[in-house]
Design a protein around this nucleic acid. Sequence first.
RNA 1: GCUGGCGUGGUGAAAUCGGCAGACACGAUAGACUCAAAAUCUAUUGGGGGCAACUCCGUACCGGUUCAAUUCCGGUCGCCAGCACCA
Length: 827
Amino acid sequence: MSSKYPFETIEPKWQRYWKDHKTFRAVEDPKVPVERRAYILDMFPYPSAQGLHVGHPEGYTATDIYSRYLRMNGYNVLHPMGFDSFGLPAENYAIKTGTHPKATTEDNIDRFRKQIQSLGFSYDWDRELSTCQADYYQWTQWIFLQLFRRGLAYEAEAPINWCPSCKTGLANEEVKDGKCDRCGSEVTRKRIRQWILKITAYADRLLSDLDGLEWPESIKQMQRNWIGRSEGANVRFKLDGRSEEIEIFTTRADTLFGATYMVLSPEHSLVERITTDAQKASVMAYVEAASKKSDLERTDLAKDKTGVFTGAYAINPVNGAKIPVWISDYVLISYGFGAIMAVPAHDERDWEFAKKFGLPIVEVVAPSHSPEAKAAVEARADGKPEGAPPVLDTPAECTHEDGVAVNSGAFNGLPTRDAMREVVAMLAGKGIGESTVNFKLRDWIFSRQRYWGEPIPLVHCPKCGIVPLEEKDLPLRLPDVKSYTPTGTGESPLAAIESWVNTTCPKCGGPAKRETNTMPQWAGSSWYFLRYLDPKNGQALASKDKVDYWMPVNLYVGGAEHAVLHLLYARFWHKVLFDMGLVNTNEPFQRLINQGMILGENGVKMSKSLGNVINPDDIVREYGADSMRVYEMFMGPLEVSKPWNTKGLVGMNRFLERVWRLAEKPLDGGTPPDSLVKLLHKTIRKVTNDTATLNFNTAISQMMIFINEITGEERLYRSLWEPFVLMLSPFAPHLGEELWEKLGHGSSIAYQPWPKWDEALCVDEEVTVVVQVNGKLREKLQVAKDMGEEELKALALSKPKVQEFIGGKDIAKVIVVPGKLVSVVTK
RNA sequence: GCUGGCGUGGUGAAAUCGGCAGACACGAUAGACUCAAAAUCUAUUGGGGGCAACUCCGUACCGGUUCAAUUCCGGUCGCCAGCACCA
């Protein structure tokens, strides 16, 4: 009678063993060559009150299997875990319940750590960190000071997302579809004094360095779009009868002759000055209304263009035309100069606006094969481009396609690309424009008017201005407060603690006030992977030796939701640290993989409100951690989203039960049958290759095939069983250790050498060769693996079945792929 | 709208230097064991037709290249994700 697989006792037993023996402690052994060192990293979790979700262990299991596999292959592996613990959820909870966020955060971390440990991951827990601890955020503050010193942090008034109901500024990630994620109110804009990081100074490098990264193409593409580099030109337009100029950015300098009006963003600084008295009332009303609009109203819903004429006119520099200057909120203050030249014939937005307000539309680019284009090209060939016949009709539709310049004076007849270059050259010659590059990426609004974050280590001194703290005075500790409730004035709750706010200036010693904004949640996570390298270092964020030993991260696994925020911020900070000589690589994460989402059993996203959430604790209790691990890896490729299915999990549990029952047979030291030896070697080959490439689902399937085969045997051969247990152990580590111990070994399986396969034993002596006649499969041949082409052809043609389908027709050709197929084609 | 990705049995999926479509698992059906159930084991399981040997169809849809297409190319439709007036 066989016993049930006792995961309830095995799993805690080995977890205790690993902890007591510090089995997975990583040590910087200089004897290990660089190519045998591996830094395998998970995106660390935010420890929420809900506890772990089944989605978390998916990526963690993948990196764990890979880490264990690498250790067994002689690698020195760094595989750490920690907690991203500053941020709004803890603070919101504190506001609601009056519990200190530190207390709830610590509770949550304890819970998370326990849950993570219950899954048997091989982390080096001696390196655990938490971003809200002073000995960690001391270095987050230190990095901020370096950014400040290098001119990469500046103070400015900037409009931020503001929730009028929660009375607080919101981070971008807390705004969903223009609404507050917490209360559902529409988010408005509020201008508040902000600390901003100059990430745009690194835009070019953040873009070009993507090319060298082994990241999913989709993530690289998302970052490219987000950075949004565009080449174009700046052009300055004179105002009619005034000294000011309007400067604009355009990617289509070639359409300058078609610019029939200009539009300023309502927030543009010239608006007030250039508006004529007659227009003042309507312009001011429009500006006022625009400022009150939420983002949602200004973008999604604003399909219909709105705007007001300022009364002012600008001069089109190429043809001297007087063109009206309007204001409209379809022009964004935050991009380019917050002003545009409008070319309605060749820009959809300008087209809609011009149609609505009856503004002139002039075609300046004709489709390449149109008669207008041909006439312009001919005129140019004759040396008289300006003599090209004018195109007078208002175009029927707007097009941004390339073509040939028309209605463009000396530029008539030039193809779009040439016209762009020529027009810019002409503008540059006159000193009223030049080619330039613009980015969509904006500077990083870095301050939060919140309590639970890193205090910004600066003071405001009435004499000296903004003064950074001395590095020796770090960390600047977060003080205790009575109330975490946001003030609603745009000041953080810290502002109310006078004893903390009032301080002395580090420079002059006079009275000064502390900066009361705190850092966003993204600060701590922008460099945590460096602190794991040297988590107890009191002198530096990490010693250079340790950075050199481990960096860069060889494999980083986490959700795709961090494609642009965390992954872009971390790259930015890393490049700054690289420029300072503190890290050895330009990029932090060499290889990135996004695990897919685990959906609910009904195929939709797991969420509390849908009642389809699976709690990993229940799974571990009922089926064991190993079943959970193997199931999550068996579900499908790591990168794709797939629905949870508890039935499927039960199947994995059955597989492990079968393995356990097999182990209860007495071991046999004899030689197993050839066919099983061959299967073993094929299995080693497949599991090795698939594990190395993170194709865990097919590796598991091969192990199942192996088990199905050897289950039929009377005896359990040690020479088959030991290699199998070794291969299984990264996937089901508790069971692996237990079976290894049962095999009579004294030490952990974690560092045993990975089994090797013999290629000669993976080859079958006999293979199936299929015969096709006119593309259809008609016969199969069992032949020796190395049968030659001629022999195969003769054998195939000798088969009655094949002859039957040839049906006496002449043979046009026969294609033979030795070991695979014979394809007969008739005339 | 733009960008990226994906469409294969009842379900999760496997197979792509083009070469037996559906490995492995779930579910289902039938049987063995049992007083019975659970567990376990055995068999069948893409669809249609045939008593059967067998045969036809089948990888979202339409077309192309090829002796041969799930795989390559062009188009259409659908789904998912991200961005969204970026001049």
